[in-house]
Nucleic acid binder design. Structure first.
Length: 603
DNA sequence: AGGATCATGAGGACAGCA
DNA sequence: TGCTGTCCTCATGATCCT
């Protein structure tokens, strides 16, 4: 059982380890001076000075602010203080809206995300300022020919927008806001921004409520194309609470739509729309937090999760895009999303890259290139036997009906071809490889337990990609509060990123998981590991004690139990109120208390 | 007693089609 | 617009075995 006895023992160990690892240079590990304070980051998560003004103009324009207004605001107060800039823009916007629309808007404008639209976007080399400068300079032309060209462009774009079923008035206003020289898709985004902004106003949401709820609900070239093609998609943009837009009033009636493709805010090497999000200053770290759970939770559950985590929009990612196995997960975090970098070397991205030796037995009619989600249970020997019998008694290639039966089972149970007509479940060490863990990470506990632990864990490369932004921010290491640690996916990710963990306070109920983590930690880490078995025993007082002792935490990370959310659960898929998944509220409780104890925001 | 093995769909998203 | 088919899902509970 958890208790102060084990904790105090660990506490002693911590101080001992700390001393032990600390040469003169690392001695300040217990001090806070090396952790960047709020001044290191702007409220939008950009590191100061990294975003040039031209890019800023473009970003705010796509949010729905007129270009002239943005330029004027930046001239007035500069671009160093994003909060002040936003405040000024909102004020101007409110005044402008009062004049233009006659609505009695408050200054709480709807702050919207920016969707980068450049088709040539290269995430690994992109500097975030591709063509904004070019567009900016072209708008300075003032000759007659330019004027006529602009008018012609303007008419053309209005026609295009009208053809997309926007009203002429909406099209006109967008062009006034953004200029006639911008891409048609910027105009589409701008109209969407205004619609959601109006929606937000009409629902009387506060700034913080709308900031991230509006995020990702529209925008992007791809969506614009879809909109042109489909009346159904068009509804998504035109508002009125229809379609797939996330609920803005927090009701559970609408589900949070899962993106397709499920690539999150961005992915290494993915050439598609990338997103730049803005968080309110109160929502940014430190402490940074990172929460994870299954993407395909019952309807309304992600809206609930988001509501409890500062209304931050989830980032849904299918690890399929990073490794050879699917893993559809939602992540809510307040980490910056620019300048991420993947773990190198990149993991094998297909089944054959991961397991080339299976190619020998792989039938041509099994067209899988990726495995499905790795779960906590594997197929029975009887099932693989049945499959083998079906194949042996069939011709080669087998008839379609047999192929379908075999393929259905192979997909369902993630079976691989290990011999002639012979399929088998993945071995635990193969799952470790796919999930990004070191080989034999889970070795030492029973095989069934290994499957269970691995099935419940993070996909390390995916998580590491998100956490990679911490490397530059914490060159001297991080202090981590790890909730529902499992087998330490977050810790392995940080380690593989080269981020030193000065201390990890880990909460994990499973004895086998704790043993796995401890075994890995002792082999690879020099920092302190404090283990707490039961999250319920991590009381507010105890959190306060840790915060006081370590000077705070830099990262609160964890994925709460999915048992009652996961589709595989046929018995008790009860949502967040379920027996296990209700522990999510302990994550919220503890995160809030850490925030509060560190002088930050509390819900 | 505890680990290993086995059988057990519902629910939701989405594409295709009339 | 609504119907239909297809696909996928961090699991649970009963039973067997050692």
């Amino acid at each position: 059982m958890a208790g102060w006895t084990s904790d105090s023992g660990d506490s002693d160990k911590f101080e001992c380890d700390s001393d032990g690892e600390a040469g003169p240079s690392s001695a300040p590990a217990m001090r806070n001076f090396d952790a960047p304070g709020p001044s290191t980051l702007g409220s939008n998560g950009w590191i100061n000075g990294e975003v040039p003004p031209t890019s800023l103009i473009e970003r705010y324009v796509v949010m729905g602010f007129p270009k002239e207004m943005v330029t004027k605001s930046i001239k007035e107060i500069g671009h160093g203080d994003a909060d002040a800039l936003l405040e000024l823009l909102l004020t101007y916007k409110a005044l402008d809206d009062d004049d233009a629309v006659g609505n009695n808007h408050s200054t709480s404008g709807c702050i919207l995300p920016v969707v980068e639209n450049d088709d040539d976007l290269d995430f690994e080399n992109w500097d975030g300022d591709d063509d904004a400068g070019g567009r900016e300079s072209s708008s300075d032309d003032s000759g007659y020919e330019d004027f006529m060209r602009e008018m012609s462009e303007r008419d053309e774009k209005i026609n295009s927008l009208v053809n997309m079923f926007f009203s002429e008035d909406e099209a006109n206003r967008a062009i006034i806001r953004c200029g006639a020289d911008v891409d048609i898709f910027v105009l589409v985004d701008s109209i969407g921004a205004s619609q959601v902004a109006e929606d937000c106003h009409s629902r009387n949401l506060s700034d913080n409520q709308v900031t991230d709820r509006c995020f990702n609900s529209f925008g992007g070239r791809k969506k614009a194309i879809l909109m042109e093609e489909s009346r159904k998609k068009r509804k998504r943009y035109r508002g009125g609470g229809q379609g797939n837009r996330p609920s803005l009033d927090g009701s559970d009636e609408e589900s949070t739509p899962l993106p397709n493709p499920m690539v999150g805010f961005n992915l290494p090497g993915y050439r598609g729309p990338s997103v730049t999000r803005m968080l309110s200053k109160l929502d940014t770290g430190p402490p940074f937090f990172y929460y994870e759970n299954v993407a395909r939770a019952p309807k309304g559950e992600w809206a609930k999760i988001s509501r409890n985590l500062f209304d931050i929009q989830p980032e849904f990612v299918d690890s399929l895009h990073l490794c050879a196995a699917a893993r559809k997960r939602g992540y809510i975090h307040n980490l910056p999303i620019e300048n991420r970098s993947p773990l190198l070397p990149l993991p094998p991205k297909t089944i054959f890259e991961a397991f080339p030796h299976y190619k020998k037995w792989w039938p041509s009619w099994d067209t899988r290139t990726h495995l499905n989600c790795l779960q906590t249970c594997v197929a029975s020997a009887k099932l693989t036997e049945r499959i083998q019998r079906a194949l042996v008694s069939s011709s080669n290639p087998p008839p379609k009906s047999v192929q379908k039966y075999v393929m259905d089972e192979c997909k369902k149970w993630n079976l691989v071809w290990v011999g002639k007509n012979k399929v088998a479940p993945l071995e635990p060490h193969e799952m470790e490889l796919l999930l990004g863990f070191p080989k034999d990470h889970t070795r030492g506990v029973g095989k069934t337990q290994r499957y269970k632990s691995l099935g419940n864990s993070f996909q390390v490369d995916t998580v590491a990609y998100h956490l990679s932004v911490l490397r530059r921010m914490f060159p001297n290491g991080v202090r981590v509060l790890s909730l529902f640690t499992s087998i330490g996916g977050g810790e392995v990710a940080l380690h593989k990123l080269g981020i030193h963990m000065r201390v990890v306070v880990s909460v994990e109920i499973g004895e086998a998981n704790r043993r796995i983590l401890r075994g890995w930690w002792d082999q690879t880490q020099t920092g302190a590991l404090i283990e707490i078995p039961d999250v319920k025993s991590l009381t507010d007082e105890r959190v306060a004690s840790f915060v006081s002792r370590f000077g705070g935490f830099d990262l609160v990370i964890g994925g709460s139990p999915c048992n009652n959310l996961a589709g595989s659960n046929r018995h008790h898929r009860d949502g967040l109120e379920g027996k296990h998944s209700a522990l999510f509220y302990d994550y919220v409780r503890i995160l809030n208390f850490v925030n509060s104890a560190m002088g930050g925001r509390r819900l």
